[in-house]
Lab assay of single mutants.
Amino acid sequence: NQASVVANQLIPINTALTLVAMRSEVVTPVGIPAEDIPRLVSMQVNRAVPLGTTLMPDMVKGYA
């Protein structure tokens, strides 16, 4: 099972992602792969992401 990126805190809309804001977890459905965490740092989310939410490619500006 592949680990996905999960919000480690509430991430407000247009907030730049940080290492502290993300964690890796095996979840269903699978979201952005955990190995992409370094690439996600400083990218912005295009919606509010609640704690525990799996990050999907369409939630991160410039990711997809």
Rank of each mutant, 00 (worst) to 15 (best):
N1E: 15
N1L: 15
N1D: 15
N1P: 15
N1Y: 15
N1K: 10
Q2Y: 15
Q2S: 12
Q2I: 11
Q2P: 14
Q2H: 11
Q2G: 14
Q2F: 13
Q2N: 15
Q2M: 12
A3N: 08
A3P: 12
A3V: 07
A3K: 09
A3Q: 09
A3F: 13
A3W: 11
A3E: 10
A3H: 09
A3I: 06
S4Q: 01
S4N: 00
S4M: 02
S4I: 04
S4C: 04
S4K: 01
V5Y: 03
V5F: 04
V5N: 00
V5D: 00
V5H: 00
V5Q: 00
V6R: 03
V6S: 00
V6M: 04
V6L: 06
V6Q: 03
V6T: 04
V6I: 11
V6C: 05
V6W: 04
A7G: 01
A7Q: 02
A7T: 10
A7C: 05
A7I: 06
N8A: 14
N8R: 08
N8H: 06
N8Y: 05
N8Q: 07
N8W: 05
N8S: 12
N8T: 12
Q9K: 13
Q9L: 13
Q9F: 15
Q9R: 14
Q9I: 12
Q9H: 13
Q9D: 08
L10V: 11
L10R: 10
L10K: 10
L10W: 11
L10P: 14
I11W: 02
I11L: 09
I11A: 02
I11T: 03
I11N: 01
I11V: 07
I11D: 01
P12C: 07
P12Q: 10
P12N: 08
P12Y: 07
P12V: 06
I13V: 14
I13T: 12
I13E: 15
I13A: 14
I13S: 13
I13L: 12
N14C: 10
N14G: 14
N14D: 13
N14Q: 06
N14H: 13
N14A: 07
T15S: 14
T15H: 12
T15F: 15
T15L: 05
T15I: 06
T15M: 10
T15R: 08
A16V: 12
A16Y: 15
A16K: 13
A16C: 12
A16H: 12
L17A: 00
L17P: 00
L17W: 00
L17V: 00
L17H: 01
L17K: 00
L17F: 01
T18D: 06
T18S: 11
T18H: 06
T18C: 06
T18W: 04
T18I: 06
T18K: 09
T18M: 07
L19F: 14
L19N: 06
L19V: 07
L19G: 04
L19R: 10
L19Y: 13
V20E: 14
V20N: 14
V20F: 15
V20Y: 15
V20S: 15
V20T: 15
V20W: 15
V20A: 15
V20D: 12
V20L: 15
A21F: 15
A21P: 00
A21H: 15
A21Y: 15
M22D: 00
M22S: 02
M22H: 00
M22K: 00
M22A: 00
R23F: 05
R23H: 03
R23T: 07
R23M: 05
R23N: 06
R23K: 10
S24I: 13
S24E: 09
S24Q: 10
S24M: 11
S24Y: 08
S24K: 13
E25F: 07
E25I: 06
E25H: 07
E25D: 10
E25N: 07
E25K: 09
E25A: 12
V26E: 10
V26T: 09
V26K: 08
V26L: 13
V26R: 07
V26G: 03
V26M: 11
V26F: 13
V26D: 08
V27Q: 02
V27T: 12
V27P: 00
V27C: 07
V27M: 05
T28L: 10
T28N: 13
T28M: 11
T28V: 13
P29M: 04
P29L: 05
P29G: 02
P29W: 05
P29C: 05
P29N: 03
V30C: 14
V30K: 11
V30F: 14
V30R: 09
V30A: 12
G31C: 04
G31R: 01
G31V: 02
G31W: 01
G31T: 03
I32Q: 03
I32H: 00
I32L: 04
I32A: 00
P33M: 06
P33A: 07
P33K: 07
P33Q: 05
P33H: 10
P33I: 06
P33V: 06
P33N: 07
P33C: 09
A34G: 07
A34H: 06
A34L: 03
A34Q: 04
A34I: 06
A34C: 08
E35W: 11
E35K: 11
E35Q: 11
E35A: 14
E35N: 10
E35H: 11
E35R: 10
D36Q: 12
D36S: 09
D36P: 00
I37S: 01
P38M: 11
P38A: 10
P38D: 10
P38W: 14
P38F: 14
P38R: 09
R39G: 07
R39C: 13
R39W: 11
R39K: 14
R39Q: 09
R39E: 07
L40S: 00
L40H: 00
L40Y: 03
L40C: 04
L40I: 12
V41M: 06
V41Y: 00
V41T: 05
V41N: 04
V41H: 01
V41R: 03
S42H: 15
S42W: 09
S42K: 13
S42I: 04
S42F: 09
S42Q: 10
S42M: 13
M43S: 04
M43C: 08
M43N: 03
M43G: 00
M43D: 02
Q44F: 15
Q44W: 15
Q44Y: 15
Q44M: 15
Q44L: 14
Q44S: 14
Q44V: 14
V45A: 05
V45R: 00
V45W: 00
V45S: 03
V45F: 00
V45M: 03
V45G: 02
N46C: 10
N46I: 12
N46T: 13
N46A: 13
R47E: 08
R47W: 06
R47T: 10
R47C: 09
R47S: 06
R47A: 08
R47M: 09
R47K: 09
A48L: 15
A48R: 15
A48M: 14
A48T: 15
A48N: 14
A48H: 14
A48I: 13
V49D: 04
V49L: 08
V49E: 04
V49A: 03
V49P: 05
V49Q: 02
P50N: 08
P50T: 10
P50E: 12
P50K: 09
P50H: 09
P50Y: 11
P50R: 10
L51M: 15
L51P: 14
L51W: 11
L51G: 12
L51A: 15
L51S: 14
G52R: 01
G52Q: 03
G52V: 02
G52P: 01
G52F: 04
T53Y: 14
T53F: 15
T53Q: 12
T53W: 15
T53E: 11
T53P: 01
T53R: 10
T54F: 03
T54Y: 02
T54K: 02
T54L: 04
T54V: 10
T54H: 02
T54I: 08
L55Y: 00
L55M: 07
L55C: 04
L55T: 01
M56C: 06
M56W: 04
M56V: 07
M56A: 05
M56D: 04
M56E: 06
M56N: 04
P57Y: 10
P57I: 05
P57R: 08
P57E: 06
P57L: 04
P57N: 04
P57A: 11
P57V: 06
P57F: 06
P57K: 07
P57Q: 07
D58R: 09
D58C: 13
D58Y: 14
M59P: 02
M59I: 04
M59H: 07
M59W: 10
M59E: 02
M59N: 04
M59R: 01
M59T: 03
V60W: 00
V60S: 03
V60Q: 01
V60L: 07
V60M: 04
V60T: 03
V60I: 13
V60F: 03
V60G: 01
K61V: 14
K61Y: 13
K61T: 14
K61Q: 11
K61L: 10
K61E: 11
K61C: 15
G62E: 08
G62M: 08
G62W: 08
G62Q: 08
Y63P: 02
Y63S: 05
Y63C: 05
Y63F: 08
Y63I: 03
Y63W: 13
Y63E: 02
A64G: 12
A64T: 15
A64S: 15
A64Q: 13
A64D: 11
A64Y: 09
A64M: 13
A64R: 13
